[in-house]
């Protein structure tokens, strides 16, 4: 391991690690997503064909993961901004992380049906 990657653990370090991991994942998806959207300049059929893979149950699961990564990165990013710019931010960083996790959890439950509903219907019929 490169020097300086060992940190102090707990909420501060793990939220930082999760922010990095989710950020890198989102960036790679963004790259692919711009490429697939660019197919609208090729032909409607080419675009619809690729978008059809986004509607399959397995990719729906990946989409749910993408939503999870984006929501965490967004909420924790707002927490980072609060730590940097709000005078009491550093003191409340732990409480803010747990608030982030709570909001994230509620939103993830809310996204369950809209993002995965069609996949469940396809796999289990009806």
């Amino acid at each position: 391991m490169p020097a300086g990657t060992l940190y102090r653990g707990r909420e501060g370090m793990w939220s930082w690690v999760a922010h990095r991991v989710t950020g890198v994942l989102i960036f790679f998806f963004l790259f692919v997503h711009v490429l697939d959207t660019a197919l609208v300049r090729v032909s409607p059929e080419a675009y619809d064909e690729v978008v059809a893979t986004y509607k399959t149950p397995i990719v729906a699961l990946l989409e749910y993961g993408l939503v999870a990564a984006i929501l965490f990165h967004a909420l924790n990013g707002l927490r980072v901004i609060a730590v940097d710019f709000w005078s009491k931010g550093p003191r409340y960083q732990k409480q803010m992380l747990w608030s982030v996790m709570a909001i994230w959890f509620v939103l993830m439950v809310g996204a369950l049906y809209p993002v995965l509903g069609h996949a469940v219907r396809e796999v289990f019929g009806s």
Binding site: V40, P44, Y47, D48, V51, Y54, K55, A60, E63, V67, I70, L71, A74, G77, L78, V80, I81, A111, P114, V115, G117, H118
Partner: peptide, 29 residues
Amino acid sequence: SGVVLVVLVIGHLLIQLVLDGGVSKIGFA
């Protein structure tokens, strides 16, 4: 950019994946 992206991206996710039938409606049209 992070603050602006929170609005833009979550709005985008809402339109593409949640509202009006979710991902099923997306296509060239």
